[in-house]
Every structure is written in C-alpha cells, then in structure tokens.
Amino acid sequence: MADQLTEEQIAEFKEAFSLFDKDGDGTITTKELGTVMRSLGQNPTEAELQDMINEVDADGNGTIDFPEFLTMMARKMKDTDSEEEIREAFRVFDKDGNGYISAAELRHVMTNLGEKLTDEEVDEMIREADIDGDGQVNYEEFVQMMTAK
C-alpha cells in the first residue's frame, strides 16, 4: 500500500514521523504519540494510545517504525480525509473560533508540534493556502489545501 505514495508524500511523512519521534530513535512510543496528540489539544487515554499503536504495529514490538507509519498514512489517505476530520483539524488551528486561521494561530500550532518556523515560513504557508488574498485561511481554503492532490 505504501508503494502507491509519491516521493514527495514519503518525504512529508518522514518529516511528520520525526515530529512524533521525539528522541530520534526511529520508533514512536505511546508516550511520544501522547505528547504530540496533547500538543494538538487531544486528550487520549493510555489505552487509546496503545490501541492506536497496536493498529499499525505490524511486528508487534509495541512501537511504530517508519515503514509501519507509512502504511498507516497510506491507509488513512485511501479513506481520504472525511469532512469531519478536516473540520476537526481546522478547529485545532482556529484557536479563537472566528472561522479563520491567522498567521499567529498557525505559528502557535506548529510551535506546539515542535516545528520552529520563521515568520517568513509561516507567512508563506498562509499565502499558499490563501486563495482570496485576505491574509488568513478560511474553512473553504483549508479544505482545498487539505484535499489538493
């Protein structure tokens, strides 16, 4: 299944994987998964984290390695993001709930994920998604960005 991913997608997933893999040992533990999910405003229980890991832990060693992570991402993409997942993601970014993602809100979430971005990089990300040019990202623009192939 992971063989249907483009090189660009694999590179993006590698970057995402390293955000989860806090200690850089090449595997994601339940603790690391929990840290990232909490930084995104989720509050999973230990059991939920274990279930999430077990779902993709092909070799049964209790952690997720990069090939397992790729399989999980490929699977998720095949079920292409349901509207509800996209709306949920939008809410994570839209901290003040005004229906727009500002540069400050984007920077806040990315920083929580451990991504240190310059102001230019954040502005560039907003510009790429900002179709109507108002300097922020509304829900429609967010959907376009998330579903762009």
Rank of each mutant, 00 (worst) to 15 (best):
A74N: 12
M72G: 00
F20I: 11
S39Y: 15
E140F: 04
D132N: 09
T118D: 13
D3K: 13
P44T: 12
G41I: 03
K149N: 11
E124A: 13
R127M: 09
R127L: 14
E46Q: 13
D132S: 15
Y139L: 00
A2G: 12
A16S: 09
T27H: 04
H108S: 11
T147N: 14
I28A: 03
Q50V: 03
M125F: 06
L5Q: 08
T29S: 06
K78C: 13
G97F: 03
E12D: 13
K22F: 06
A58P: 15
L49I: 07
T6D: 04
Q42H: 13
E84W: 03
M72K: 06
L49A: 14
H108E: 15
A104I: 01
E120I: 11
F20L: 12
L113S: 08
K116I: 13
D59N: 11
T111V: 00
K22T: 09
A47G: 10
L117V: 05
T111D: 01
E124L: 01
E120K: 08
R107A: 14
I101H: 06
F17T: 01
L40E: 02
N138I: 13
D25N: 12
F13A: 06
L33F: 14
G97S: 10
D59V: 09
M125Q: 05
N54K: 08
N61D: 11
H108Y: 13
T6G: 06
G34D: 02
D23S: 00
F69I: 04
E128G: 11
R38Y: 00
G99T: 05
T118N: 07
L106N: 06
L106P: 01
R107S: 03
D57T: 08
A11G: 09
M110N: 03
F13M: 00
Y139H: 11
D65W: 12
I53D: 06
G99S: 14
E88M: 06
R91P: 05
G133P: 01
I64A: 08
A2I: 05
F93G: 06
N54V: 04
G133C: 01
R38S: 08
V109Q: 05
S82T: 04
S39W: 15
L49K: 03
K14A: 04
I53H: 15
P67R: 08
K76Q: 02
K22D: 03
D119F: 08
M110L: 11
S39F: 00
F17E: 05
E140H: 06
K78S: 13
L5W: 03
E105Q: 00
Q9A: 00
K149S: 07
F69S: 07
I131D: 00
V56S: 05
T111E: 14
M52D: 15
E15V: 08
E141R: 07
M125A: 07
T63Q: 05
E88Y: 14
V92D: 04
I131N: 14
G26H: 03
E48S: 05
E68F: 01
T111Y: 02
E124D: 07
N138F: 14
T111C: 07
K95E: 10
V122I: 11
V109M: 10
V36E: 11
D130W: 00
A58Y: 08
M77S: 14
D123P: 09
M73Q: 06
T63I: 12
R38F: 03
G62S: 12
N98H: 10
T27W: 05
D65F: 05
F90L: 07
T6V: 15
E68A: 14
A148D: 06
Q136E: 12
F13Q: 02
G62P: 01
T29G: 00
S102V: 02
I28H: 04
D119G: 11
D130R: 03
D57G: 12
G34C: 12
E83C: 02
D21F: 14
R75G: 13
L70G: 09
E12N: 09
F90A: 05
I10C: 15
S102A: 05
D132R: 03
Q144P: 10
V122W: 04
D119T: 15
N43I: 13
Q4K: 11
E121A: 03
V143D: 04
A2M: 02
G99A: 05
T80W: 05
I101S: 04
R75N: 01
D130C: 08
K78R: 12
E128M: 15
V137M: 15
E85T: 11
T35C: 09
T71G: 07
Q144G: 08
I53P: 12
T45M: 03
E48R: 06
E46K: 06
V137G: 04
I28F: 13
K95A: 00
A148F: 15
E141T: 15
M125V: 11
A103L: 00
R107C: 10
K31V: 02
V122R: 04
D21I: 02
A129E: 03
K116E: 11
I10M: 07
F13H: 01
D94G: 09
K22A: 14
A129F: 01
D57V: 09
M52A: 00
D79N: 10
L70S: 13
L5A: 05
K116D: 00
T27Y: 03
A2E: 14
D119V: 08
M37G: 00
E84Y: 09
T63D: 04
Q144C: 06
D96V: 09
E105Y: 06
Q42C: 04
I86C: 06
F13D: 15
G41P: 06
K116L: 14
I10K: 00
E115W: 05
K14M: 06
E83W: 11
V56M: 10
N112A: 03
F90D: 10
L106D: 15
E7Y: 05
T111P: 07
N61R: 03
R75T: 03
Q136H: 09
G62H: 14
E141Q: 03
G34S: 15
G62N: 02
G60H: 15
D3R: 15
L5D: 05
D81Y: 07
M125I: 09
F20W: 14
Q42G: 07
F90H: 07
A148V: 12
P67L: 11
Q50G: 05
A104T: 09
L33P: 09
H108A: 11
Y100A: 07
E55Q: 10
N112K: 07
E88G: 10
E68P: 04
K76N: 07
G41W: 10
I131W: 14
I10E: 09
E15N: 02
G135D: 05
Q4H: 06
D51C: 00
T6R: 02
K78H: 03
N61S: 13
I101W: 01
S82L: 12
E140Q: 13
Q42K: 05
Q136D: 05
T30Y: 05
L113I: 10
R75P: 09
E84K: 09
E120A: 14
E84M: 01
G60A: 01
E124H: 05
D134Q: 08
Q9S: 08
E68H: 04
I64V: 13
E128I: 11
A89L: 04
I28G: 01
P67H: 09
A11R: 01
E105K: 06
E140L: 02
I86M: 00
A104N: 03
G24S: 10
L5V: 09
E15Q: 09
E55N: 08
F17M: 01
N98K: 13
R127N: 11
M73R: 10
E85C: 07
N138E: 14
E83G: 12
D65A: 10
T29N: 01
G41F: 15
E115N: 07
F142T: 07
F142N: 04
E121N: 01
Y100S: 07
E124K: 12
I101V: 12
A2F: 15
E141L: 00
T45P: 06
T118Q: 15
T147D: 10
T6N: 00
M52R: 07
R107G: 13
M73K: 14
F69A: 05
D130T: 02
D134T: 15
S102C: 14
V143N: 04
F66V: 12
I64C: 13
G62Y: 01
L33C: 00
N112R: 15
N43R: 15
T35D: 04
Q136Y: 02
D3E: 12
D130N: 10
E88L: 02
A47L: 07
T27S: 11
S102Y: 00
T147I: 13
Q136M: 00
M146T: 11
E124F: 06
E12G: 10
T45D: 00
N54W: 08
G60R: 08
Q144V: 07
T6L: 08
Q9M: 01
G24V: 11
I10T: 10
N43V: 07
A89F: 15
G114A: 05
D51K: 03
K22E: 12
N61F: 03
G135M: 03
L106T: 04
F17D: 05
P67K: 04
G114E: 05
L49P: 01
D123T: 02
Q9F: 15
L5M: 11
T6A: 12
E121S: 00
I64S: 09
K95S: 15
E140Y: 12
E88D: 11
M52Q: 01
E32Y: 01
T71Y: 02
E7V: 10
P67E: 07
T147P: 12
M110V: 10
G24K: 12
V137S: 06
T63M: 03
T80K: 09
R75F: 06
A47D: 08
M146E: 06
P67Q: 10
G34N: 05
F66Q: 06
I28T: 09
F142D: 04
V143K: 15
D132W: 04
E141C: 06
G114F: 03
E120L: 09
V143A: 12
K31N: 11
K78Q: 13
Q42W: 04
D132Y: 08
A148P: 07
A74T: 11
E128T: 06
E46H: 06
